[in-house]
Design a protein around this nucleic acid. Structure first.
Length: 552
DNA sequence: TGTGGCTGCCC
DNA sequence: ATTCTGC
DNA sequence: GCAGAATGGGCAGCCACA
Protein backbone atom coordinates (compact mmCIF):
# COMPACT_ATOMS: atom_id res chain seq x y z
CA UNK A 1 0.00 0.00 0.00
CA UNK A 2 1.27 3.44 -0.82
CA UNK A 3 1.58 5.47 2.32
CA UNK A 4 1.29 9.21 2.04
CA UNK A 5 4.00 9.52 4.66
CA UNK A 6 6.48 7.79 2.37
CA UNK A 7 5.52 10.21 -0.40
CA UNK A 8 5.96 13.18 1.92
CA UNK A 9 9.36 11.91 3.00
CA UNK A 10 10.45 11.64 -0.62
CA UNK A 11 9.25 15.19 -1.23
CA UNK A 12 11.21 16.43 1.74
CA UNK A 13 14.30 14.63 0.53
CA UNK A 14 13.91 15.96 -3.02
CA UNK A 15 13.46 19.50 -1.74
CA UNK A 16 16.81 19.27 0.01
CA UNK A 17 18.78 18.09 -3.01
CA UNK A 18 20.25 20.56 -5.46
CA UNK A 19 21.48 18.20 -8.15
CA UNK A 20 18.81 17.33 -10.69
CA UNK A 21 20.40 13.99 -11.45
CA UNK A 22 20.38 12.98 -7.82
CA UNK A 23 16.82 14.15 -7.46
CA UNK A 24 15.71 12.06 -10.43
CA UNK A 25 17.52 9.04 -9.02
CA UNK A 26 15.71 9.25 -5.69
CA UNK A 27 12.31 9.84 -7.25
CA UNK A 28 12.89 6.96 -9.67
CA UNK A 29 13.70 4.58 -6.84
CA UNK A 30 10.51 5.57 -5.07
CA UNK A 31 8.25 5.33 -8.13
CA UNK A 32 9.68 2.01 -9.26
CA UNK A 33 8.43 0.16 -6.18
CA UNK A 34 4.87 1.50 -6.17
CA UNK A 35 1.85 -0.50 -7.24
CA UNK A 36 0.06 0.65 -10.36
CA UNK A 37 -2.67 2.76 -8.77
CA UNK A 38 -0.29 4.41 -6.33
CA UNK A 39 2.22 5.08 -9.09
CA UNK A 40 -0.36 7.14 -10.96
CA UNK A 41 -1.26 9.14 -7.88
CA UNK A 42 2.32 9.70 -6.73
CA UNK A 43 3.45 10.80 -10.19
CA UNK A 44 0.79 13.50 -10.45
CA UNK A 45 1.21 14.54 -6.82
CA UNK A 46 4.91 15.11 -7.47
CA UNK A 47 4.18 17.84 -9.98
CA UNK A 48 1.53 19.36 -7.73
CA UNK A 49 -1.48 17.99 -9.54
CA UNK A 50 -3.95 16.81 -6.93
CA UNK A 51 -6.28 15.34 -9.54
CA UNK A 52 -5.25 15.19 -13.20
CA UNK A 53 -7.13 17.74 -15.25
CA UNK A 54 -9.59 18.90 -12.60
CA UNK A 55 -9.93 22.15 -10.70
CA UNK A 56 -9.86 21.95 -6.92
CA UNK A 57 -11.40 25.34 -6.23
CA UNK A 58 -9.00 25.80 -3.32
CA UNK A 59 -6.86 28.90 -2.97
CA UNK A 60 -5.19 30.65 -0.06
CA UNK A 61 -8.44 31.77 1.48
CA UNK A 62 -10.05 28.35 1.79
CA UNK A 63 -6.77 26.73 2.78
CA UNK A 64 -6.09 29.25 5.59
CA UNK A 65 -9.64 28.69 6.76
CA UNK A 66 -9.02 24.97 7.02
CA UNK A 67 -5.67 25.49 8.74
CA UNK A 68 -7.21 27.87 11.24
CA UNK A 69 -9.82 25.30 12.06
CA UNK A 70 -7.21 22.58 12.43
CA UNK A 71 -5.13 24.74 14.76
CA UNK A 72 -8.08 26.12 16.63
CA UNK A 73 -7.11 29.69 15.82
CA UNK A 74 -8.37 32.47 13.55
CA UNK A 75 -7.59 32.83 9.83
CA UNK A 76 -5.90 36.09 10.80
CA UNK A 77 -3.41 34.22 12.97
CA UNK A 78 -2.74 31.87 10.07
CA UNK A 79 -2.03 34.91 7.91
CA UNK A 80 0.44 36.15 10.55
CA UNK A 81 2.25 32.82 10.42
CA UNK A 82 2.28 33.09 6.64
CA UNK A 83 3.95 36.44 6.82
CA UNK A 84 6.74 35.13 9.03
CA UNK A 85 7.31 31.79 7.29
CA UNK A 86 6.15 32.54 3.75
CA UNK A 87 5.20 28.89 3.38
CA UNK A 88 1.76 27.27 3.68
CA UNK A 89 3.53 23.95 4.13
CA UNK A 90 5.25 25.04 7.31
CA UNK A 91 2.07 26.59 8.64
CA UNK A 92 0.26 23.32 7.97
CA UNK A 93 2.98 21.38 9.75
CA UNK A 94 2.53 23.65 12.73
CA UNK A 95 -1.21 23.07 12.55
CA UNK A 96 -0.69 19.32 12.65
CA UNK A 97 1.56 19.71 15.70
CA UNK A 98 -1.07 21.42 17.75
CA UNK A 99 -4.16 19.90 16.20
CA UNK A 100 -7.13 18.70 18.15
CA UNK A 101 -7.90 15.19 16.96
CA UNK A 102 -11.17 15.04 15.07
CA UNK A 103 -11.85 11.35 15.36
CA UNK A 104 -11.35 8.46 17.71
CA UNK A 105 -9.02 6.93 15.18
CA UNK A 106 -6.76 9.91 15.48
CA UNK A 107 -6.77 9.52 19.26
CA UNK A 108 -5.90 5.87 18.95
CA UNK A 109 -3.06 6.70 16.58
CA UNK A 110 -4.43 5.99 13.12
CA UNK A 111 -2.72 3.78 10.57
CA UNK A 112 -1.58 6.80 8.62
CA UNK A 113 -2.92 8.25 5.40
CA UNK A 114 -2.83 6.35 2.14
CA UNK A 115 -2.10 8.04 -1.18
CA UNK A 116 -5.50 6.91 -2.45
CA UNK A 117 -7.27 8.29 0.59
CA UNK A 118 -5.66 11.70 0.16
CA UNK A 119 -6.58 11.77 -3.51
CA UNK A 120 -10.10 10.65 -2.62
CA UNK A 121 -10.49 13.67 -0.35
CA UNK A 122 -9.18 15.94 -3.09
CA UNK A 123 -11.76 14.42 -5.43
CA UNK A 124 -14.50 15.25 -2.95
CA UNK A 125 -13.09 18.78 -2.79
CA UNK A 126 -13.09 19.09 -6.59
CA UNK A 127 -16.61 17.68 -6.89
CA UNK A 128 -18.14 20.08 -4.38
CA UNK A 129 -20.35 22.71 -5.99
CA UNK A 130 -23.33 24.85 -5.21
CA UNK A 131 -24.52 26.07 -1.82
CA UNK A 132 -22.26 24.91 0.98
CA UNK A 133 -19.44 23.84 -1.34
CA UNK A 134 -16.83 26.10 0.23
CA UNK A 135 -17.68 24.66 3.63
CA UNK A 136 -17.33 21.16 2.17
CA UNK A 137 -13.89 22.02 0.84
CA UNK A 138 -12.78 23.39 4.19
CA UNK A 139 -14.13 20.33 6.01
CA UNK A 140 -12.33 17.87 3.76
CA UNK A 141 -9.05 19.76 4.15
CA UNK A 142 -9.59 19.98 7.89
CA UNK A 143 -10.10 16.22 8.00
CA UNK A 144 -6.83 15.63 6.15
CA UNK A 145 -4.90 17.92 8.49
CA UNK A 146 -6.46 16.25 11.50
CA UNK A 147 -5.26 12.84 10.34
CA UNK A 148 -1.85 14.00 9.17
CA UNK A 149 1.52 14.07 10.81
CA UNK A 150 3.32 17.43 10.52
CA UNK A 151 5.35 16.27 7.54
CA UNK A 152 2.26 14.90 5.79
CA UNK A 153 0.37 18.10 6.53
CA UNK A 154 3.12 20.12 4.89
CA UNK A 155 2.64 18.41 1.56
CA UNK A 156 -1.14 18.16 1.82
CA UNK A 157 -1.21 21.94 2.08
CA UNK A 158 1.16 22.32 -0.86
CA UNK A 159 -0.96 19.88 -2.88
CA UNK A 160 -4.07 21.86 -2.04
CA UNK A 161 -2.33 24.89 -3.57
CA UNK A 162 -1.11 22.68 -6.45
CA UNK A 163 2.38 24.03 -5.85
CA UNK A 164 4.89 21.59 -4.34
CA UNK A 165 7.99 23.81 -4.33
CA UNK A 166 10.34 20.84 -4.14
CA UNK A 167 12.27 21.66 -7.29
CA UNK A 168 10.39 19.01 -9.24
CA UNK A 169 8.38 20.05 -12.26
CA UNK A 170 7.15 18.26 -15.33
CA UNK A 171 10.69 17.89 -16.62
CA UNK A 172 12.18 16.07 -13.65
CA UNK A 173 9.04 14.00 -13.07
CA UNK A 174 9.25 12.75 -16.66
CA UNK A 175 12.93 11.93 -16.25
CA UNK A 176 12.20 10.10 -13.00
CA UNK A 177 9.56 7.95 -14.70
CA UNK A 178 11.99 7.14 -17.48
CA UNK A 179 14.71 6.25 -14.99
CA UNK A 180 12.34 4.19 -12.85
CA UNK A 181 11.39 1.91 -15.71
CA UNK A 182 14.63 2.13 -17.68
CA UNK A 183 13.14 3.96 -20.66
CA UNK A 184 14.31 6.68 -23.01
CA UNK A 185 13.41 10.06 -21.43
CA UNK A 186 12.49 11.33 -24.90
CA UNK A 187 9.82 8.63 -25.19
CA UNK A 188 8.32 9.54 -21.83
CA UNK A 189 8.40 13.21 -22.76
CA UNK A 190 6.66 12.47 -26.04
CA UNK A 191 3.93 10.51 -24.26
CA UNK A 192 3.37 13.32 -21.81
CA UNK A 193 3.31 16.08 -24.40
CA UNK A 194 0.75 14.19 -26.43
CA UNK A 195 -1.57 13.40 -23.51
CA UNK A 196 -0.79 15.93 -20.75
CA UNK A 197 -1.61 13.11 -18.36
CA UNK A 198 1.30 12.07 -16.17
CA UNK A 199 -0.75 9.38 -14.45
CA UNK A 200 -1.42 7.68 -17.76
CA UNK A 201 2.18 8.13 -18.86
CA UNK A 202 3.55 6.62 -15.65
CA UNK A 203 1.31 3.58 -15.97
CA UNK A 204 2.09 3.05 -19.64
CA UNK A 205 5.79 3.51 -18.93
CA UNK A 206 5.61 0.81 -16.29
CA UNK A 207 3.90 -1.52 -18.75
CA UNK A 208 6.29 -0.66 -21.57
CA UNK A 209 3.37 0.55 -23.67
CA UNK A 210 4.31 4.21 -24.12
CA UNK A 211 4.28 3.87 -27.88
CA UNK A 212 0.49 3.50 -27.76
CA UNK A 213 0.16 7.15 -26.76
CA UNK A 214 -0.12 8.95 -30.05
CA UNK A 215 -1.63 12.01 -31.65
CA UNK A 216 -5.40 11.71 -31.87
CA UNK A 217 -8.33 13.98 -32.61
CA UNK A 218 -9.92 15.40 -29.46
CA UNK A 219 -6.84 14.68 -27.40
CA UNK A 220 -5.16 18.08 -27.20
CA UNK A 221 -1.42 18.24 -27.81
CA UNK A 222 0.80 20.50 -25.71
CA UNK A 223 1.48 23.65 -27.65
CA UNK A 224 4.87 24.54 -29.07
CA UNK A 225 6.10 27.78 -27.54
CA UNK A 226 8.46 30.56 -28.57
CA UNK A 227 11.60 32.00 -27.05
CA UNK A 228 12.41 35.68 -26.95
CA UNK A 229 14.75 36.53 -29.82
CA UNK A 230 17.55 39.05 -29.51
CA UNK A 231 16.79 40.94 -32.69
CA UNK A 232 16.15 40.39 -36.37
CA UNK A 233 19.77 40.06 -37.55
CA UNK A 234 20.56 37.46 -34.87
CA UNK A 235 17.48 35.45 -35.82
CA UNK A 236 18.57 35.47 -39.45
CA UNK A 237 22.10 34.27 -38.66
CA UNK A 238 21.23 30.64 -39.48
CA UNK A 239 19.59 31.53 -42.78
CA UNK A 240 16.03 32.04 -43.97
CA UNK A 241 13.17 32.17 -41.48
CA UNK A 242 9.42 31.87 -41.78
CA UNK A 243 8.08 35.29 -40.83
CA UNK A 244 4.65 35.80 -39.25
CA UNK A 245 3.05 38.63 -37.30
CA UNK A 246 2.94 38.06 -33.57
CA UNK A 247 -0.71 38.68 -32.87
CA UNK A 248 -1.91 40.12 -29.58
CA UNK A 249 -4.51 37.42 -29.09
CA UNK A 250 -5.11 34.06 -27.51
CA UNK A 251 -3.71 30.75 -28.68
CA UNK A 252 -6.14 28.06 -29.88
CA UNK A 253 -5.75 24.45 -30.97
CA UNK A 254 -8.64 23.29 -33.09
CA UNK A 255 -9.65 19.67 -33.53
CA UNK A 256 -11.87 18.89 -36.50
CA UNK A 257 -13.46 15.48 -36.89
CA UNK A 258 -15.76 15.92 -39.87
CA UNK A 259 -18.50 18.26 -38.68
CA UNK A 260 -17.49 17.93 -35.01
CA UNK A 261 -15.21 20.78 -33.99
CA UNK A 262 -13.59 21.51 -30.65
CA UNK A 263 -11.40 24.43 -29.63
CA UNK A 264 -8.75 24.19 -26.91
CA UNK A 265 -6.91 27.00 -25.15
CA UNK A 266 -3.23 27.31 -24.29
CA UNK A 267 -3.76 25.30 -21.10
CA UNK A 268 -5.75 22.81 -23.18
CA UNK A 269 -9.10 23.82 -21.69
CA UNK A 270 -12.08 23.14 -23.93
CA UNK A 271 -13.31 26.62 -24.88
CA UNK A 272 -15.55 25.56 -27.78
CA UNK A 273 -18.76 26.84 -26.20
CA UNK A 274 -17.37 30.36 -25.82
CA UNK A 275 -16.25 30.73 -29.43
CA UNK A 276 -19.19 29.91 -31.75
CA UNK A 277 -17.94 32.00 -34.67
CA UNK A 278 -14.60 30.21 -34.60
CA UNK A 279 -16.40 26.86 -34.78
CA UNK A 280 -18.51 28.20 -37.63
CA UNK A 281 -15.58 29.51 -39.65
CA UNK A 282 -13.72 26.22 -39.26
CA UNK A 283 -16.79 24.35 -40.44
CA UNK A 284 -17.05 26.56 -43.51
CA UNK A 285 -13.46 27.16 -44.44
CA UNK A 286 -11.39 24.15 -43.41
CA UNK A 287 -11.53 21.63 -46.22
CA UNK A 288 -9.75 18.77 -44.46
CA UNK A 289 -12.05 16.14 -43.02
CA UNK A 290 -9.86 15.50 -39.99
CA UNK A 291 -7.33 17.96 -38.70
CA UNK A 292 -5.59 19.42 -35.67
CA UNK A 293 -4.84 23.08 -36.31
CA UNK A 294 -2.84 25.65 -34.36
CA UNK A 295 -3.45 29.36 -34.42
CA UNK A 296 -4.22 32.61 -32.66
CA UNK A 297 -7.58 34.37 -32.34
CA UNK A 298 -7.66 38.15 -32.23
CA UNK A 299 -10.48 40.58 -31.58
CA UNK A 300 -10.91 42.97 -34.46
CA UNK A 301 -12.68 46.31 -34.19
CA UNK A 302 -14.63 48.13 -36.87
CA UNK A 303 -11.47 49.88 -38.04
CA UNK A 304 -9.79 46.52 -38.66
CA UNK A 305 -7.31 47.16 -35.85
CA UNK A 306 -6.93 44.69 -32.98
CA UNK A 307 -9.04 45.48 -29.93
CA UNK A 308 -7.36 45.56 -26.50
CA UNK A 309 -6.37 42.17 -25.11
CA UNK A 310 -8.83 42.77 -22.28
CA UNK A 311 -11.66 42.40 -24.79
CA UNK A 312 -10.45 38.96 -25.83
CA UNK A 313 -10.48 37.95 -22.18
CA UNK A 314 -14.17 38.75 -22.11
CA UNK A 315 -14.76 36.06 -24.72
CA UNK A 316 -12.68 33.22 -23.30
CA UNK A 317 -14.49 30.97 -20.80
CA UNK A 318 -17.70 32.93 -21.23
CA UNK A 319 -20.84 30.81 -20.65
CA UNK A 320 -23.60 33.39 -20.70
CA UNK A 321 -24.47 36.01 -23.30
CA UNK A 322 -22.05 34.36 -25.70
CA UNK A 323 -23.82 35.49 -28.89
CA UNK A 324 -24.24 39.07 -27.78
CA UNK A 325 -20.58 39.28 -26.83
CA UNK A 326 -19.59 37.61 -30.10
CA UNK A 327 -21.20 40.57 -31.87
CA UNK A 328 -19.48 43.25 -29.79
CA UNK A 329 -16.07 41.51 -29.68
CA UNK A 330 -15.83 39.56 -32.94
CA UNK A 331 -12.91 37.18 -33.16
CA UNK A 332 -10.79 36.47 -36.20
CA UNK A 333 -8.93 33.20 -36.65
CA UNK A 334 -5.30 33.15 -37.80
CA UNK A 335 -4.10 29.59 -38.35
CA UNK A 336 -0.36 29.08 -38.60
CA UNK A 337 0.22 25.36 -38.16
CA UNK A 338 -1.24 21.91 -38.68
CA UNK A 339 -0.31 18.91 -36.52
CA UNK A 340 -2.54 16.21 -37.91
CA UNK A 341 -4.31 15.72 -41.21
CA UNK A 342 -6.70 12.95 -42.26
CA UNK A 343 -5.21 10.21 -40.12
CA UNK A 344 -1.62 11.35 -40.37
CA UNK A 345 0.59 12.72 -37.58
CA UNK A 346 2.52 15.69 -39.01
CA UNK A 347 4.66 16.54 -35.98
CA UNK A 348 7.88 15.39 -37.58
CA UNK A 349 7.32 17.12 -40.90
CA UNK A 350 9.19 20.38 -41.35
CA UNK A 351 7.41 23.67 -40.78
CA UNK A 352 7.70 24.36 -44.48
CA UNK A 353 5.99 21.08 -45.30
CA UNK A 354 3.28 21.61 -42.67
CA UNK A 355 2.63 25.07 -44.06
CA UNK A 356 2.19 23.59 -47.52
CA UNK A 357 -0.35 21.09 -46.18
CA UNK A 358 -2.11 23.80 -44.16
CA UNK A 359 -2.51 25.88 -47.29
CA UNK A 360 -4.24 22.97 -48.98
CA UNK A 361 -6.35 22.12 -45.90
CA UNK A 362 -7.94 25.52 -45.30
CA UNK A 363 -9.05 28.73 -46.97
CA UNK A 364 -6.28 31.31 -47.26
CA UNK A 365 -8.55 33.83 -45.53
CA UNK A 366 -8.21 32.15 -42.13
CA UNK A 367 -4.45 31.62 -42.32
CA UNK A 368 -1.86 33.88 -40.74
CA UNK A 369 0.26 35.45 -43.49
CA UNK A 370 3.69 33.90 -43.72
CA UNK A 371 6.72 34.54 -45.90
CA UNK A 372 10.01 32.70 -45.89
CA UNK A 373 12.74 35.24 -46.11
CA UNK A 374 16.47 35.70 -45.43
CA UNK A 375 16.69 39.42 -46.11
CA UNK A 376 17.09 41.64 -43.07
CA UNK A 377 15.52 44.72 -44.60
CA UNK A 378 12.51 42.78 -45.81
CA UNK A 379 11.91 41.26 -42.36
CA UNK A 380 12.33 44.68 -40.77
CA UNK A 381 9.63 46.00 -43.10
CA UNK A 382 7.17 43.29 -42.03
CA UNK A 383 8.02 44.02 -38.39
CA UNK A 384 7.23 47.71 -38.86
CA UNK A 385 3.95 46.80 -40.54
CA UNK A 386 2.96 44.46 -37.71
CA UNK A 387 3.56 47.18 -35.14
CA UNK A 388 1.79 49.82 -37.21
CA UNK A 389 -1.18 47.46 -37.44
CA UNK A 390 -1.27 47.33 -33.64
CA UNK A 391 0.23 43.90 -33.06
CA UNK A 392 3.06 42.77 -30.80
CA UNK A 393 5.86 42.16 -33.27
CA UNK A 394 7.05 39.12 -35.21
CA UNK A 395 7.41 35.39 -34.92
CA UNK A 396 10.51 34.11 -36.73
CA UNK A 397 10.47 30.35 -37.20
CA UNK A 398 12.99 27.83 -38.47
CA UNK A 399 11.42 26.52 -41.72
CA UNK A 400 13.01 23.11 -41.38
CA UNK A 401 12.01 22.46 -37.76
CA UNK A 402 9.47 19.87 -36.59
CA UNK A 403 6.52 20.73 -34.33
CA UNK A 404 7.89 20.18 -30.84
CA UNK A 405 4.91 19.90 -28.45
CA UNK A 406 5.44 21.61 -25.12
CA UNK A 407 8.90 22.89 -26.09
CA UNK A 408 10.04 26.48 -25.84
CA UNK A 409 13.02 26.41 -28.13
CA UNK A 410 14.96 28.53 -30.54
CA UNK A 411 13.09 27.21 -33.56
CA UNK A 412 10.37 29.76 -32.79
CA UNK A 413 11.57 33.22 -31.81
CA UNK A 414 9.43 36.19 -30.87
CA UNK A 415 10.65 39.70 -31.60
CA UNK A 416 9.03 42.57 -29.71
CA UNK A 417 9.92 46.25 -29.30
CA UNK A 418 11.25 47.60 -26.03
CA UNK A 419 8.95 50.27 -24.64
CA UNK A 420 10.42 53.38 -23.06
CA UNK A 421 10.50 52.84 -19.31
CA UNK A 422 8.75 54.80 -16.56
CA UNK A 423 10.15 56.17 -13.31
CA UNK A 424 7.61 55.41 -10.58
CA UNK A 425 7.49 55.88 -6.82
CA UNK A 426 7.37 52.90 -4.47
CA UNK A 427 4.37 53.51 -2.21
CA UNK A 428 4.03 50.09 -0.60
CA UNK A 429 5.12 46.48 -0.67
CA UNK A 430 4.00 42.95 0.09
CA UNK A 431 5.79 40.21 2.06
CA UNK A 432 6.95 37.39 -0.17
CA UNK A 433 6.59 33.62 -0.07
CA UNK A 434 8.92 30.66 -0.64
CA UNK A 435 12.31 31.96 -1.78
CA UNK A 436 11.14 35.43 -0.80
CA UNK A 437 9.89 34.50 2.67
CA UNK A 438 10.42 37.26 5.26
CA UNK A 439 11.44 39.64 2.51
CA UNK A 440 9.40 42.20 0.69
CA UNK A 441 8.64 40.46 -2.59
CA UNK A 442 6.53 42.87 -4.60
CA UNK A 443 6.30 46.62 -4.75
CA UNK A 444 3.42 49.01 -5.21
CA UNK A 445 3.97 51.80 -7.71
CA UNK A 446 2.62 55.31 -7.99
CA UNK A 447 2.81 58.11 -10.54
CA UNK A 448 2.52 61.83 -9.83
CA UNK A 449 -0.75 63.71 -10.25
CA UNK A 450 0.62 67.14 -11.12
CA UNK A 451 -2.62 68.94 -10.22
CA UNK A 452 -3.01 67.58 -6.70
CA UNK A 453 0.53 66.48 -5.92
CA UNK A 454 -0.84 63.07 -4.92
CA UNK A 455 0.60 59.74 -5.95
CA UNK A 456 -1.79 57.59 -7.99
CA UNK A 457 -1.56 53.79 -8.14
CA UNK A 458 -0.38 52.18 -11.38
CA UNK A 459 -0.01 48.63 -10.03
CA UNK A 460 2.83 46.49 -8.73
CA UNK A 461 6.22 45.17 -9.85
CA UNK A 462 7.85 41.96 -8.61
CA UNK A 463 10.16 40.67 -11.32
CA UNK A 464 13.54 41.85 -12.51
CA UNK A 465 14.98 41.86 -8.98
CA UNK A 466 18.06 39.81 -8.11
CA UNK A 467 18.16 38.16 -4.69
CA UNK A 468 20.75 40.68 -3.51
CA UNK A 469 18.68 43.64 -4.57
CA UNK A 470 15.62 42.12 -2.96
CA UNK A 471 17.43 41.85 0.36
CA UNK A 472 18.77 45.37 0.04
CA UNK A 473 15.36 46.81 -0.75
CA UNK A 474 13.78 44.98 2.17
CA UNK A 475 16.34 46.61 4.44
CA UNK A 476 15.68 50.07 3.06
CA UNK A 477 11.89 49.87 2.92
CA UNK A 478 11.50 48.25 6.33
CA UNK A 479 12.51 51.55 7.88
CA UNK A 480 10.01 53.47 5.75
CA UNK A 481 6.92 51.45 6.74
CA UNK A 482 4.12 53.71 7.90
CA UNK A 483 1.30 51.18 8.04
CA UNK A 484 0.99 47.41 7.98
CA UNK A 485 -2.04 45.22 7.32
CA UNK A 486 -2.01 41.52 6.48
CA UNK A 487 0.73 40.80 3.97
CA UNK A 488 0.87 44.43 2.80
CA UNK A 489 2.77 47.45 4.01
CA UNK A 490 2.56 51.11 3.12
CA UNK A 491 5.86 53.01 2.93
CA UNK A 492 6.84 56.64 2.89
CA UNK A 493 7.38 57.61 -0.76
CA UNK A 494 11.14 57.93 -1.13
CA UNK A 495 12.35 55.19 -3.47
CA UNK A 496 12.00 55.52 -7.25
CA UNK A 497 11.97 52.51 -9.59
CA UNK A 498 12.65 52.56 -13.30
CA UNK A 499 10.05 50.10 -14.59
CA UNK A 500 9.82 48.41 -18.00
CA UNK A 501 6.62 46.97 -19.48
CA UNK A 502 5.03 45.75 -22.72
CA UNK A 503 2.02 48.01 -22.86
CA UNK A 504 -0.04 50.47 -20.86
CA UNK A 505 -3.58 49.26 -20.22
CA UNK A 506 -6.71 50.98 -18.98
CA UNK A 507 -7.26 49.76 -15.44
CA UNK A 508 -10.53 49.38 -13.59
CA UNK A 509 -8.71 48.73 -10.32
CA UNK A 510 -5.94 51.32 -9.92
CA UNK A 511 -6.52 54.95 -9.03
CA UNK A 512 -4.51 56.35 -11.95
CA UNK A 513 -6.90 54.54 -14.33
CA UNK A 514 -3.92 52.82 -15.95
CA UNK A 515 -1.83 49.73 -15.28
CA UNK A 516 1.30 48.24 -16.84
CA UNK A 517 1.22 44.97 -18.75
CA UNK A 518 4.13 42.74 -17.67
CA UNK A 519 5.88 45.25 -15.39
CA UNK A 520 9.52 44.56 -14.44
CA UNK A 521 12.18 46.42 -12.55
CA UNK A 522 14.92 47.87 -14.74
CA UNK A 523 16.82 49.82 -12.08
CA UNK A 524 16.50 51.57 -8.75
CA UNK A 525 16.81 55.31 -9.47
CA UNK A 526 18.95 56.44 -6.54
CA UNK A 527 19.49 59.67 -8.44
CA UNK A 528 15.81 60.58 -8.57
CA UNK A 529 13.44 61.91 -5.94
CA UNK A 530 9.71 61.13 -5.93
CA UNK A 531 9.08 64.67 -7.18
CA UNK A 532 10.95 63.75 -10.37
CA UNK A 533 8.93 60.60 -11.02
CA UNK A 534 6.77 60.32 -14.13
CA UNK A 535 3.35 61.94 -14.18
CA UNK A 536 -0.10 60.67 -15.03
CA UNK A 537 0.02 62.96 -18.09
CA UNK A 538 3.08 61.17 -19.44
CA UNK A 539 1.42 57.78 -18.92
CA UNK A 540 -1.76 58.79 -20.69
CA UNK A 541 0.26 60.26 -23.54
CA UNK A 542 2.17 56.99 -24.01
CA UNK A 543 -1.14 55.14 -23.80
CA UNK A 544 -2.51 57.35 -26.58
CA UNK A 545 0.31 56.82 -29.07
CA UNK A 546 1.47 53.27 -28.27
CA UNK A 547 1.24 50.37 -30.73
CA UNK A 548 1.21 52.46 -33.85
CA UNK A 549 -1.89 54.41 -32.79
CA UNK A 550 -2.02 58.09 -33.62
CA UNK A 551 0.94 59.96 -35.03
CA UNK A 552 2.10 57.10 -37.26
C1' DT B 1 -31.44 40.10 -5.18
C1' DG B 2 -27.18 42.56 -5.60
C1' DT B 3 -22.25 42.63 -4.68
C1' DG B 4 -17.66 41.57 -3.39
C1' DG B 5 -14.15 38.07 -2.62
C1' DC B 6 -12.09 34.00 -4.39
C1' DT B 7 -10.33 30.96 -7.95
C1' DG B 8 -8.48 29.66 -12.33
C1' DC B 9 -6.65 30.90 -16.58
C1' DC B 10 -5.71 34.18 -20.61
C1' DC B 11 -1.56 37.03 -21.62
C1' DA C 1 3.34 36.63 -19.36
C1' DT C 2 8.93 38.19 -17.38
C1' DT C 3 12.92 37.46 -14.87
C1' DC C 4 16.49 35.31 -12.01
C1' DT C 5 19.07 31.18 -10.45
C1' DG C 6 21.32 26.70 -9.99
C1' DC C 7 22.62 22.81 -12.52
C1' DG D 1 20.34 26.29 -22.32
C1' DC D 2 16.91 24.27 -19.48
C1' DA D 3 13.82 23.82 -15.66
C1' DG D 4 11.92 25.64 -11.75
C1' DA D 5 10.31 29.39 -8.75
C1' DA D 6 8.27 33.81 -7.78
C1' DT D 7 5.87 37.21 -9.28
C1' DG D 8 2.52 41.00 -12.80
C1' DG D 9 -2.99 42.80 -14.89
C1' DG D 10 -7.52 41.48 -15.71
C1' DC D 11 -11.45 38.72 -17.13
C1' DA D 12 -15.80 35.23 -16.09
C1' DG D 13 -18.04 32.29 -13.04
C1' DC D 14 -19.20 30.92 -8.65
C1' DC D 15 -20.32 31.27 -3.92
C1' DA D 16 -21.16 33.58 0.58
C1' DC D 17 -23.34 37.07 2.74
C1' DA D 18 -25.79 41.31 3.53
Amino acid sequence: MGSFLAFAQICQKAAGIGSSLEKVEILAGYLRDLQEADLGIAATFLIGEAIPGQELGVGPSILYDALARAMGCTPGQVADLMRSTGDVGLVAAAAAEKKRPLSLAAFAGSDGLELAEVQGRFMAIARASGRGSQEARVKNLHYLFSEASPLEAQFIARLAMEDMRIGVGEGLARDAIARAFDLDPEEVERGYNLTSNLELVAKRAREGRLAELGVAINRPVKMMLAQIGENIPAALAQGAVAVEWKYDGARVQIHKDGPAIRVFSRRLEDVTASLPEIVQVVRERVWAREAILDGEVVATGGDGRPMPFQDILRRFRRKYDVDRMARSVPLKLNLFDILYLDGEDLLNRTLQERRRLLTKAADQGILADQVVCADQAAVQKIYDEALAAGHEGLMLKNPSSPYAPGKRGKNWLKIKPVMESLDLVVTGARWGEGKRASQLGSFRLGCRDVQTGELLDVGWVATGLSEDLLAELTGILRDLIVKESGMEVEVAPQVVFEVGYEEIQRSPSYSSGYALRFPRLIAVRDDKSPEEADSLERISEIFRIQRGRAGS
